[in-house]
Design a protein around this nucleic acid. Structure first.
Lengths: 224, 224
DNA sequence: TCCCCTCATATGTTTAAACATATTTTTCAT
DNA sequence: ATGAAAAATATGTTTAAACATATGAGGGGA
């Protein structure tokens, strides 16, 4: 037995898709729809919240609800921890710490205590899969200076205690620099998939990372 | 004045992040939390729904709610219609239809009526920005055979009437093939960012598209 | 005509109560 | 001890009612 709010959501979805409610159309108010479907206002509201969440309608107090112009394809993207992703495919995971050093405050990212730079390599079946170049703010995470990254990657270490409030992720393609090419055993200029992430806690920078993958070994797929 | 459900959500978030509620920990029941925070069960429930939506907790009837192991970074990604993206940056949008042909059923994608293949180029400031290679199922969308794609891209034409229920999107990097390199005015092997999307209505294939961009011109950024 | 104030109203938040549903736990017969 | 039936219980859905809040609409004065 389908939940009533789901049935109402789907019926409204149908009206939008079939053009009964074209883009820009103002839908009936919540009390009107509640009367039409014979349910309480709260049930209609839950259905409308789902459509609003999906970006199909726009709601404003007093102004009502209108069918939104779909101007973007939105979907939920999931980026697994690199070790889990590799093991989930049945491959053997390998890890190597390449470099670790501390620099005094230099860039815009981070504060006066300086940054911890860590560079490490994740391998799948002994083939380089991801080069992780990470910077950690020693102002926000001073305990990272004591952490031993020779066995556990900063990625996993951070996830276990990360109190992030804001995360900014950028996906892009690039040609491998000489440095990256050497680390990933590619020729310079070879296509790589780059994932950059910056993490903040209440506006304060915690860590930023660039993860570079050989293009042939990496892709992201989302459904819905 | 912060909404109460938001304050409760943030307090629970804090308990998870600070380790008061470690991974695997079973949280108090809704009535218990309602009593603790001095609100109705529905308000606690709304806060917990938000955490559940975010994947921070897992809920099961009768079994209760526990802190989930964060095994992936999930975030919402938005891919704008290419023309809007270009115009939003203040650049001049250009469009050219390169090829259009119909093939009888050949691939796994599509049905017996065959496929419409459309190839077109999107330009930003007269520089090739995206090569769109699209296939449309003539079984599901026979009216596409009549559409004139010389002025409007299939992308935009489809968005205006798309009743999709399922969308699968793949992001990857690649080296430009000879064909793509020529279309995008790159040298063969140059890094490109590829976006592939397949769209279904109730399990029936509607359209699939490969969108290739020069790596230097394209990236996707998400916040949260 | 134009601007500001007031009022109306659609959405947003919260409460309380009842019932549904999926599982776990307990009971009890074998 | 074992397994099936019964009870217990945490989450899930729905209702109804009250109040909060943003903002569109209309009226009045300069």
């Amino acid at each position: 037995m389908m939940k009533r709010f789901a049935a109402i959501r789907d019926e409204m979805l149908r009206r939008i898709n079939d053009g009964d409610w074209p883009v820009g159309h103002e839908l009936p108010t919540e009390p009107q729809l509640a009367a039409e479907f014979g349910v309480a206002r709260g049930t209609v509201r839950r259905a409308m919240d789902a459509l609003s969440e999906q970006g199909l309608v726009e709601r404003r107090k007093r102004a009502g609800t209108r069918v939104a112009a779909r101007q973007a394809h939105a979907s939920r993207m999931s980026i697994p921890i690199v070790r889990h992703g590799i093991e989930a495919r049945g491959d053997t995971y390998g890890y190597r710490l390449l470099d670790r050093r501390i620099s005094k405050a230099d860039t815009a990212f981070g504060g006066p205590a300086g940054m911890l730079h860590v560079e490490c390599l994740h391998l799948a079946n002994n083939v380089p899969f991801q080069l992780e170049e990470r910077q950690i703010s020693l102002d926000s995470l001073p305990e990272s200076a004591e952490a031993d990254f020779s066995q556990q990657s900063p990625n996993e270490w951070l996830v276990s205690l990360i109190p992030a409030t804001d995360v900014e992720t950028t996906l892009r393609a690039d040609g491998a620099s000489d440095h990256v090419a050497e680390r990933l055993a590619l020729s310079p200029g070879a296509p790589i998939f780059v994932l950059e992430r910056r993490t903040f806690l209440n506006g304060e920078a915690l860590t930023q990372v660039r993860m570079s993958h050989p293009a042939s070994l990496f892709s992201i797929t989302t459904r819905n």
